[in-house]
């Protein structure tokens, strides 16, 4: 496991081997220092996140009512989980969301960051305005988008009508509703990912580009041979966190799609399903099992990415 995560030059220093070696005083001091530095975070996470999660695992083997009263049911919740058509459907929708929004979002935010990292005119105005969506409240924003996409009174359909184009019931057609949700999700995340990537690009030493310029590399060659490889730790971060948040998409769906929406089935995500079972229906045991499944899937996908990173992510060695 440690191999997957290590990016430091001492990665060969596997713990077991090191334990057999003599530990220097310096190293010992470093260990104490490291534990001291991670202690506040780890203690806080244990109390507020990890302990509740352990409780949640216990809930998943129980029938839990709205008031946290439990009756042990063994694997019943999991048995139900694998027979539930809604779970399958929700995973399908969520997967579609992740598979489309992650690459599209990454490519758009890298392009934006790269453009804004050049000497183009007015880049500070662009930077500021592109960044605006990144600081807004998702609940407020979902409301505005819902209103703009409204079939009857929305500004989009009105504009289409003026242009003589056909209008559409964007949010209630199961063929388009999920794409509208993706658009809103992308709108909110691209600005922020752009900032992270821009920060990463600024960390790349100009000397690399100067060397490349001497070698006569064009802008595209520079981008693919210098920017992307040296930016890879940041890109890796953006991919990992986009995939995780993609699997957890909920707010926008919840705000934009009601239960009588004909596209309801085709827009419900796994977290929507979890939320409905836990908070609307009060089936907290079953909801816990759903959340464990979500966790397991994200964990698996993330582990695969951590294994894969060795092939393309360059840490400074």
């Amino acid at each position: 496991m440690h191999l997957l995560l290590s990016g430091s030059p001492v990665r060969e220093g596997c713990i077991m081997k090191k334990a057999k070696r003599k530990v220097s005083a310096r190293q010992k001091r470093d260990w104490g220092f490291a534990y001291l530095y991670i202690a506040p975070l780890v203690i806080g996470l244990l109390i507020f996140y990890i302990w509740p999660f352990i409780q949640n695992i216990w809930f998943s083997f129980n029938d839990v009512n709205k008031f946290n009263m439990t009756t042990f049911v063994g694997l019943e919740n999991y048995r139900k989980l694998f027979q539930d058509q809604d779970v399958l459907k929700a995973f399908g929708n969520t997967l579609k969301y992740v598979v489309i929004t992650v690459p599209v979002g990454l490519i758009l935010s890298i392009i934006l960051a790269a453009l804004l990292n050049t000497k183009i005119r007015g880049k500070s105005i662009y930077r500021t305005l592109y960044f605006l969506p990144a600081i807004t409240m998702s609940a407020a924003v979902a409301m505005v988008w819902k209103w703009m996409f409204n079939e009857q009174m929305g500004v989009l359909n009105s504009a289409l009508k003026v242009l003589g184009l056909p209008t559409h019931n964007w949010l209630t057609d199961s063929g388009t509703a999920l794409y509208v949700i993706m658009l809103v999700g992308l709108w909110m995340s691209i600005g922020y990912n752009m900032v992270i990537l821009l920060a990463g690009m600024q960390g790349i030493s100009p000397s690399y580009y100067e060397a490349a310029a001497i070698d006569g590399g064009g802008a595209f060659a520079q981008f693919f041979h210098i920017t992307v490889p040296l930016l890879s730790p940041t890109i890796f971060f953006v991919v990992i966190t986009s995939v995780i948040s993609g699997f957890q998409v909920f707010d926008v769906v919840y705000m934009m799609i009601g239960t009588t929406n004909p596209a309801f089935d085709d827009t419900q995500t796994v977290v929507s399903l979890f939320y409905r079972e836990a908070f609307s229906y009060g089936h907290k045991g079953y909801a816990a099992a759903i959340s464990i499944l979500i966790f397991a899937v994200i964990m698996l996908v993330t582990l695969i990415q951590f294994i894969g990173q060795k092939k393309w992510v360059n840490y400074d060695d």
């Binding site: 496991m1 440690h2 997957l4 995560l5 290590s6 430091s8 001492v10 220093g13 713990i15 090191k18 334990a19 190293q27 470093d30 260990w31 490291a34 534990y35 991670i38 975070l41 780890v42 996470l45 996140y49 990890i50 999660f53 949640n56 966190t241 995780i244 957890q248 909920f250 796994v270 977290v271 979890f274 939320y275 836990a278 908070f279 959340s291 979500i294 966790f295 994200i298 964990m299 993330t302």
Partner: peptide
């Protein structure tokens, strides 16, 4: 580099993977 570094880091990361609700 310290003992259990990766195990603890995985523990920290795993918090991200749980639906916040």
């Amino acid at each position: 580099e310290f003992p259990f570094r990766n195990a603890i880091f995985i523990l920290v990361l795993s918090v991200l993977m749980v639906p916040g609700q």
